[in-house]
Simulated scan of single mutants.
Amino acid sequence: MTEGNFVDYVKIHVTSGKGGKGSVHLHREKFITKGGPDGGDGGRGGHVIIRGNPNLWTLLPLKFKRHLKAEHGGAGSKGRSSGADGKDIYIDVPLGTVVKDSETTETLFEITEAGQEEIVAEGGMGGRGNWHFKSSTNQTPRYAQPGVDGQERDITIELKVLADVGLVGFPNAGKSTLLSVITAAKPKIADYEFTTLKPNLGIVAYRDYKTFVMADIPGIIEGAAEGKGLGHYFLRHIERNSLLLFLVPADAKDIVKEYEILLDELRRYNPEMLDKDRLVAISKCDMLDDELKAEMKAELDKDLKAPYIFISSVAQMGLTELKDTLWKMLNA
């Protein structure tokens, strides 16, 4: 999927259908000139329903459909016949989608399962026909209820990528390169910061035809939790990942400090993120000789409070060990 086709945030206006009006009808037949009331009820207005679709990866289909309206209910008729219910509208979204009320920013629900359906705007109830209102003192009521109006609201739909492993790191740490080497994904790769502006997903092929999904999250910068840069857009995608793989380049000034800054950004955005399993990958290690690597290892053993591994995507070093470690952690 190209970067331009990955849409993870849309605002749309939804309107459910109005209920049909009840019928005011008096029964008339040959030889029955003054039958009683027999007006039927109006049909329910159509709902607007959000539905989880596991075959979707993006909100692109909604990008150009900003107004969605369900059908109105049909009016009641004679012989106590009810009007037809309005046709419901289904909005298919990928799994991992959060739906919010645009005005209050309140989270209405989350779609996490295939086929999950949630009503975002209820159709109006149909009006009752005049036969409901007959009584001993009013045997021929000549009124019925109108249908109830449908709901109208603005909603915000956000996608939080669902993946087994999320790649976390500063811009230009080598996340896209790693994804391109161990999966069939083809993310944009260049030697400048913020090359990746949208998450990229790839399927990692493991032993015995087993697979797991890895997501390349756009680079985090210090202050992202406060919304600096595109912090909130990037950080929300990490919430859905089972395991976090922190990527820190071997030529970083201070590997432990970089890791702690990344960890602190996650903590400030959502403390629950720290409950996820974590692994640190020291990337670009083909630049290190054995002596320098041993020296760095001694420092990391002492100061880095997380399991770590040395890798090089370009030189294909440590990638088998990385996949083995990730698989064990995912299936622990």
Rank of each mutant, 00 (worst) to 15 (best):
M1G: 12
T2Q: 02
E3S: 15
K11R: 14
H13T: 13
V14E: 00
T15G: 00
S16Y: 06
G17L: 12
G17D: 00
H27I: 11
F31V: 14
F31K: 15
T33L: 15
G35M: 10
D38T: 05
G40P: 02
V48C: 08
P54N: 11
N55H: 15
T58V: 03
L60C: 11
R66F: 07
G73R: 01
G79I: 00
D85I: 13
D88W: 05
Y90I: 15
I91K: 12
I91Q: 13
D92T: 09
V93E: 00
G96S: 13
D101M: 05
L108Y: 02
E110T: 15
E113H: 14
E113K: 14
I119Q: 03
I119A: 12
R128N: 05
W131L: 08
S135G: 14
N138Q: 12
P141T: 13
P141M: 14
Q145P: 01
G147I: 08
G150F: 08
I157F: 12
L159G: 07
K160E: 13
V161F: 08
D164E: 07
D164W: 06
V165N: 06
V168I: 15
N172P: 04
A173E: 01
T177E: 07
K186C: 01
K186T: 09
N200S: 08
A205C: 09
Y206L: 12
T211P: 00
F212T: 10
A215V: 05
G223Q: 04
A225T: 00
G229W: 05
F234Y: 13
L235H: 11
R236G: 10
R236A: 12
R236S: 11
R236N: 06
F246E: 02
L247W: 00
A252Y: 04
K253W: 08
D254T: 06
Y259D: 02
L263E: 00
L263W: 08
R268C: 10
Y269P: 05
I282T: 03
S283A: 07
S283H: 04
L288H: 10
L288Q: 02
D289W: 07
D289T: 02
K293V: 03
M296V: 11
K302T: 11
K302V: 04
P307G: 12
S313R: 01
A315E: 06
G318Q: 02
L322Q: 00
A332P: 01
